[in-house]
Design a protein around this nucleic acid. Structure first.
Lengths: 135, 135
DNA sequence: ATTTACGTTTACGTTAACGTCAACTTAAGT
DNA sequence: ACTTAAGTTGACGTTAACGTAAACGTAAAT
């Protein structure tokens, strides 16, 4: 059912953020929920936008960058004069993301080494001092 | 030659950051270059630290998180009582990084779609209006 | 009727990560 | 001796992304 609606605290608790944060995103124009009287009422599209925002944030994007990326999916921006520049943006963003992937892989490689060094070190300790119980 | 030294502006220009930024990192205890009189003098270890900091930043880590990760490589911290907690930290960080990789892949997938949609749209335009030169 | 839960707006506070002067000092080149 | 280039310390300014608190409305539950 893609027509489900949500209250502000529904979404806040689902995503582990505060209602303040959600209202803040609205202030910044990232979401525009309907109103029922004075209450905000969110639909599944709003929910997806929040999801995308949080995903962007996890990989170090600013809110504005999140909007930029989300807008790429928006058919409204397909006024064709700017399609070329949109494609350019997408390409640039993809390149950035590939760089980030490489950064993450490098860091993972390093951490794997650190971890194995730690474990070797612990193994040695317990060999010299068998009283220390390894787990 | 691992014993090379660098001035502050050497490193600033190499990494595309300002000297202010490098001094700021020092204020925060991320680097501790030697002094020659009043001038700062950096060695290759300092240089690597900056490199690691910038890599961390690219994937959205805070400066403090960068320090935390860099410290994992530091043999000083191998006082063994904390080796277990270090291993835990490393594991957690690795999990985070895997999540980030997934986020990036998801976003890449999305952008690939956006890009191909754009290009299709452009192709159609040029078919209906051949005057518009595609590139 | 009033407590409780949930929501609202407005406004000021906060932290991180630098930028931007201003006012020197030091070393090197001419 | 003078200028220029590169460096220094300090102090204040700035932006992003919320947190926090005050003061209030609404609606269901006891």
């Amino acid at each position: 059912m893609p027509n489900k609606t949500y209250s502000i605290s529904d979404l806040a608790s689902e995503f582990g953020i505060t209602t303040r944060t959600i209202r803040f995103y609205e202030e910044k124009g990232l979401i525009s929920p309907l109103r029922e009287g004075q209450k905000r009422i969110y639909n599944s599209a709003d929910r997806v936008r929040i999801k995308l925002i949080l995903r962007g944030k996890r990989i170090g994007m600013t809110l504005q960058e999140c909007v930029d990326v989300i807008d790429m999916y928006d058919p409204e921006h397909n006024n064709a004069e700017q399609l070329h520049s949109l494609i350019t943006m997408v390409k640039e963003r993809r390149a950035q993301l590939e760089q980030q992937k490489q950064d993450i892989d490098d860091m993972l490689t390093g951490l794997v080494e650190v971890q194995s060094l730690c474990q070797q070190s612990l193994a040695n300790k317990s060999r010299h001092n068998p009283a220390t119980k390894p787990e």
